[in-house]
């Protein structure tokens, strides 16, 4: 396999290309997001996330492409537990996960119908969700009394209020954005940094701030699973497929060598 000189020149020149256009690529998105490390193999975390989801999200949001039974099978949840503790709108495990609240009512109450959450993790990405879920704060100017530091004027009130409690926005840490009048350098003691927003807890919830963060990681982990249940199969089968291909490669390579022995 002789690479010609021009190909070599090309390979040398490629990094120049990679550097040049990158100089203007930044600046499109200025949201500061906390990164979340999720793990689809952590079944306990997924189970906890599923319970949070059916308790706090599913009353308003659907997961209309997902079936309860699939969830129970994938996450090692017994059908008994599923039907007694996790299914509130149906008694058939084969049913799709449809919200308890009718869509017309939702539109009337919130102005918009709550979006379906089946694919939200693939649409918004996990870091966004993790920061968003922790970014609700009290805001008297808003119609429902809540606002969000990631999604300004979100129509959703703080659904997880009883877990987190209520917090107020103190300010933002500076990251070069002009006009941030309330900017302060860093969070003080007792304050919490979420993305670039600094919050102060007004009324404690049933979970401590650290416990709440863990709970939100579980919930995001579950949402990521919900968006692509097949990822469990992909990761389970993947190594076997790749291993088999490597063996096939060795065999086919030896076969080729054998056949080509007389070609000079």
């Amino acid at each position: 396999m002789k690479l010609s000189n021009s190909i070599k020149a090309l390979l040398v020149a490629l990094p120049i290309l990679a550097v040049a256009p990158n100089t203007f690529a930044a600046g499109a998105e200025s949201l500061v997001l906390d990164s979340v490390h999720i793990d689809s193999r952590d079944t306990e975390s997924l189970q906890r996330g599923a319970e949070l989801f059916v308790t706090y999200c599913l009353s308003c949001h659907s997961a209309q492409y997902m079936r309860y039974e699939r969830l129970a099978n994938d996450l090692d949840i017994s059908l008994e537990k599923l039907s007694q503790e996790m299914m509130f709108t149906t008694d058939k495990p084969g049913d799709l996960m449809i919200a308890a609240m009718p869509e017309e009512d939702a539109k009337e109450w919130f102005g918009v119908a709550p979006p379906d959450l089946t694919l939200v993790s693939r649409l918004r990405k996990n870091d966004w969700l993790y920061t968003y879920l922790r970014g609700f704060y009290l805001d008297e100017a808003s119609p429902n009394g809540w606002n969000n530091s990631v999604f300004e004027n979100a129509a959703m009130p703080h659904a997880l209020y009883e877990l987190q409690g209520s917090q107020t926005l103190v300010g933002h840490i500076e990251h070069g954005v002009e006009g941030a009048g309330d900017a302060q350098a860093e969070p003080q003691q007792g304050q919490k940094l979420v993305g670039d927003a600094i919050f102060e807890l007004q009324k404690a919830g049933t979970l401590s701030p650290t416990e709440f963060d863990t709970a939100m990681r579980d919930l995001v982990n579950f949402l990521s699973y919900l968006a692509e249940p097949a990822q469990l199969q992909r990761r389970a089968i993947g190594p076997w497929v790749m291993g088999w291909l490597v063996i096939l490669f060795v065999v086919s390579y030896l076969l080729k060598k054998e056949y080509w022995r007389d070609v000079h």
């Binding site: 992909r234 089968i237 497929v241 291909l245 086919s252 080729k256 080509w260 070609v263």
Partner: peptide
């Protein structure tokens, strides 16, 4: 048989990359 066996090697290498993306980076 020369290029059928040689191309088989190429096809297998292609599948390693392609299925690698399908299974790990869809």
């Amino acid at each position: 048989p020369y290029y059928t066996v040689k191309d088989t090697v190429g096809v297998v290498v292609f599948f390693i990359i392609y299925l690698g993306v399908v299974f790990y980076w869809p």
